[in-house]
Design a protein around this nucleic acid. Structure first.
Length: 760
DNA sequence: TTTAGGCATTCAGAATGAGTCTT
DNA sequence: AAGACTCATTCTGAATGCCT
């Protein structure tokens, strides 16, 4: 029989000695299937093949000769099939016996990964299986497949989803599984059912696990599941002797290698992983995440530090808060799921894994699948020292206010250059006819591996966008297509950076270096051309130009870029006014429509206090709207007075900074490190990646001796002077100075407005 | 399990230097 | 008069988070 199924995940299962994969699937009606498929992993030998043959014979391995490529160069290879045992061990044994003249490829890639690469079957996509239905059990139907085929993309079936929030806390500091019980679990299903488990901990854990088994969700989604919650849940279960059977077929959660937890048969999706890679977020909380997604829903804000207190005083409020979180998680999941599934399908990484993987690994997985397709062998990672190379060109801005400035952007400059000059690890050659400005040479044909990847991606994106125009804008199809085109774009844009990453399997510094070198040439020749056409280039960064006096001249410049450079550029926006300081990468502008955009300045930096950011934004807006520096000064003074009087919400004084490494590795004493240490002493768990918030308080000594965790600061301790002189004044001062106002005026008259100011 | 380099900024702590005190 | 000491200023490097 044949079945059409949607693939959730693929897992190696050791049922017998046979190498076997389980394909966890859903059908159109929502039934769960496990498709069992025999899959024999293989690896490649290259080099001294004659020397390897006797060993292969004596080991009784199945093998065959084949043609493959290494960095574009054709090679003879032997493909060795590993029917039983571990590929890496077999390969190592073979290599040793062959005496070092034989290279080994692809033995380091796990079977479940290799299956995707070699079959072209992709997670989060539809497949057709041919075979036999062999039995049922516990909500799962088993199928033995003879053949599995990938099908054309179409929207996923309806999946059942459980959004989960675990509640645990400590009287002081972070909750510790050796001490603090789970108090509550809130679950919100996507069919509307809401459950809350409370009471004795054993009861909470068993009834939660029981409910998960009964409702049998395909997806479990949460915020902080991977880093904290699952391991907490497991540890507490162990301590009270209850099995946390939340996986399908009675499985417990399994912590896999790199901070990712697997729940058998279900997708375990942690939105915290996603929030962490969104640069717009400063503190990466659930609240901030849903706000970023544009989801409007009431949610109480209760800090971790006040949970114990609130629970003791008013349990109901905390319970409501926890359920609100579960609901918010579900709403957020609904908003991002299409993107996750698209990314999963595109990169051939299972959906719950692709979120924890960093950009580099996503690109790599995509390239690996492509490599198998074109017969390019996948190299292993090597440890090599990092050598930095020149990047994009940044032209210093002309400081001050500029009116009517057009911003010209090159479209995907680095990908376009890689395609145009066929820049790739397999076209790099001393005889290449494409010569980069820094001397590296690339053959113009045949098409390189990376340009091929990029063309495929760009073409794919073009097709999706075309389809997108043909479907109703608010339809499911539109949402899925849009998510997919964004996924394609993120992968395409990351390929250049990937080639310069030392951790990459296909790390090739020459490729990255040549790309930026051509980029610099392009931007500087465009600046020259713009000036020849009578425009003024007031600023430029990597692939964008800010142009003044552009009336009637932009068309010619764009045509020149298309004609002479063979690249695409477009006018991204036109600013009615832009203000630059002396600094690069920092400016603010206003469009004709009145939209204010702030770039690089304190306003958009998460490591400045809210009060300084707000003051700067207000000063900038006043300046950009009126063009009058006096208005900006007035705004700045208004804020200065507020700070002097101490009339500011304490939350606006918090300065957030990330802990980027184990505390012992810091060379210099810094405020946020001091605060992290204070918190650790008080029982908080702080690890790299966490953000620490502090407030500066009065007292003697260096700054790092005058900081406290934000939630422990009383109003009368605050060092208002610090916020005035080191936060507000520099943030606003920079802006004012750029328009010729003495920044000291912010402070000098901050107390009372003088008569003169009054009259103005 | 860190896609790249370019950049501004703050603060800590070392280096420098002027001035004063001690022997 | 030379060296020790204090204090203020200048310089350098560590660290972070932004931009394209």
């Amino acid at each position: 029989m044949r079945l059409r199924l949607w693939l959730l995940d693929v897992v190696s299962e050791q049922e017998t000695a046979e190498p076997l994969l389980w394909l966890w699937c859903k059908d159109e009606n929502g039934a769960t299937w496990v498709v069992k498929q025999r899959y024999v992993p293989s690896f490649y030998l290259v080099g001294d093949l004659k020397g390897a043959e006797p060993t292969l014979e004596s080991e009784n391995l199945r093998w065959e000769h084949c043609e493959r490529r290494i960095r574009g160069r054709p090679v003879e290879a032997i493909r060795v099939y590993v029917e039983s045992g571990d590929s890496e061990k077999v390969a190592e044994r073979l290599a040793k016996r062959a005496g070092g003249r034989t290279g080994v490829y692809e033995e380091d890639i796990r079977p479940a990964v290799k299956y995707f690469l070699e079959t072209g079957v992709k997670p989060c996509s539809w497949i057709e299986v041919e075979g036999e239905h062999v039995g049922d059990g516990e909500g799962v139907s088993f199928f033995e497949a003879e053949a599995v085929d990938a099908l054309e993309p179409s929207p996923p079936p309806k999946l059942s989803v459980a959004a989960v929030d675990f509640l645990f806390f400590s009287e002081k500091g972070s909750a510790k599984p050796e001490r603090d019980p789970i108090r509550l679990i809130s679950v919100c299903f996507n069919d509307g059912e809401k459950l809350q488990f409370e009471g004795g901990e054993a009861e909470i854990i068993t009834s939660f696990s029981e409910a998960v088994r009964r409702r049998d969700p395909d997806v479990i989604v949460g915020f902080g599941l991977n880093r904290v919650q699952w391991s907490y849940f497991e540890e507490r279960s162990r301590r009270i002797g209850v099995k946390p059977l939340v996986g399908r077929l009675e499985a417990e959660p399994r912590t896999s290698l790199h901070g990712h937890v697997s729940i058998r048969g279900r997708l375990n999706i942690d939105l915290d992983d996603m929030a962490r890679e969104i640069p717009e977020l400063t503190v990466e909380t659930l609240e901030e995440f849903i706000e970023y997604l544009g989801i409007e829903m009431p949610i109480d804000i209760i800090g971790e530090y006040e949970l114990a207190d609130k629970w003791a005083k008013d349990e109901e409020t905390v319970k409501r808060y926890s359920m609100q979180r579960a609901e918010a998680i579900l709403r957020a999941y609904e908003a991002v799921k299409d993107f996750i599934f698209s990314l999963s399908e595109l990169t051939s990484m299972p959906a719950d894994y692709v979120l924890t993987a960093s950009a580099g690994f996503r690109v790599e997985n995509y390239l690996m699948a492509l490599a198998v397709k074109v017969g390019e062998l996948i190299p292993k990672r090597t440890e090599i020292p990092h050598i930095s190379y020149p990047g994009g060109l940044v032209k210093a801005p002309s400081p001050g206010i500029h009116e009517n400035v057009a911003v010209l952007d090159f479209r995907s400059m680095y990908p376009s250059l890689m395609i145009k000059y066929n820049i790739s690890f397999d076209t790099l050659s001393d005889e290449g006819e494409n010569i980069a400005p820094n001397g590296y040479r690339f053959r113009s044909s045949p098409e390189g591996f990376l340009p091929h990847a990029l063309k495929t991606l760009l073409e794919e994106r073009r097709k999706i966008q075309e389809k997108l125009r043909q479907v109703p804008p608010d339809s499911v199809e539109a949402r899925v297509l849009d998510a997919r085109q964004r996924a394609v774009k993120t992968i395409a844009n990351a390929i250049y950076g990937y080639t310069g990453w030392v951790g990459a399997r296909w790390y090739t510094r020459e490729v990255a270096e040549a790309t930026t070198a051509w980029g610099r040439e392009v931007i500087s020749s465009t600046i020259k051309k713009a000036e020849e056409l009578g425009m003024r280039v007031v600023y430029s960064d990597t692939d964008s130009l800010f142009l003044k006096d552009h009336e009637g001249k932009l068309g010619e410049l764009i045509r020149w870029i298309e004609g002479d450079l063979g690249l695409e550029a477009k006018i991204d926006r036109i600013f009615k006014r832009v203000i630059f300081t002396e600094a690069k990468k920092r400016y603010a502008g206003i469009t004709e429509e009145g939209a204010v955009e702030v770039v690089g300045l304190e306003t958009v930096r998460g490591d400045w206090s809210e009060i300084a950011r707000e003051a700067q934004r207000n000063a900038l807006e006043a300046l950009l709207r009126t063009g009058d520096p006096k208005k900006a000064l007035e705004k700045a003074r208004e804020y200065a007075r507020m700070v002097k009087r101490g009339a500011v919400d304490l939350k606006k004084l918090v300065i957030w900074r990330q802990i980027t490494r184990p505390l012992s590795e810091y060379a210099a004493t810094q405020p946020h490190i001091v605060v992290a240490k204070i918190m650790i002493d008080e029982g908080w768990k702080i690890q790299p990646g966490d953000k620490v918030g502090y407030i500066v308080v009065k007292g003697p000594g260096p700054l790092h001796a005058r900081v406290k965790p934000y939630f422990k600061v009383m109003r009368d301790e605050v060092d208002w002077n610090y916020y005035l002189e080191k936060q507000l004044a520099p943030a606003c001062g920079r802006v004012l100075e750029a328009v010729g106002v003495n920044p000291e005026l912010i402070l000098e008259t901050a107390g009372e407005p003088t008569l003169m100011e009054f009259l103005e």
